[in-house]
Every structure is written in structure tokens, then in C-alpha cells.
Amino acid sequence: MKVRDLDCLYEVCPIPLIKAVKELKKMNSGDVLVVHSDESCVGVMMEEWAKQNHYSIQIEEPKDGEWEIYLQKP
């Protein structure tokens, strides 16, 4: 299992999701992608996407107004 970070700070919807999908294509089953974002709608969007594509997802807000979105490839 590999963990990869994707810096999407200061980037607006839907760019973080497009970048994440591109990055996940290069990863293997079980790998985790951590998307860093400062926009609340990114998590909402990714949650919906993860549900449709059967990815595990967890969203943390380690700092106020900053999110880490963990996506695990099935």
C-alpha cells in the first residue's frame, strides 16, 4: 500500500477532483491518495464521486478551513 499526496490548495472546484482522478489512475488497488484542499466543496464533490466509483473516503479538517481527503483505491 502506497500513500501519495496531492496538493490542491488554492485551487477551485472541479480542478482538485479532475487532478485526483488522473492521479488515481496511475495508482494500484489499496493505495491511498491524500488530497489537500482549502475549499469546502471539494470534499462534498469527492464524497459523491467516491460513492459512485466505490472508493473508500475519509475527510479530515486538521486546520480550520483546510481539508485532507483520503481516497483509497478499491
Partner: peptide, 27 residues
């Protein structure tokens, strides 16, 4: 990381009350 759940959205350690959810979570 095996027990990730799509329902498990975290709002910070003390942020369980409804008001905080209502203010923080995008509508």
C-alpha cells in the same frame, strides 16, 4: 486504513453538536 467509511465525515474533535455541523458543512 481498512475501515474507511463514506459516512465517516469528521468535523473536528469537539464538533459533534448540530449547530456546528449546520454552520460548517456545505448545504
Amino acid at each position: 486504513m481498512g475501515n474507511l467509511s463514506s459516512e465517516a465525515v469528521n468535523f473536528g474533535k469537539d464538533g459533534t453538536d448540530a449547530m456546528k455541523r449546520w454552520l460548517k458543512k456545505p448545504w
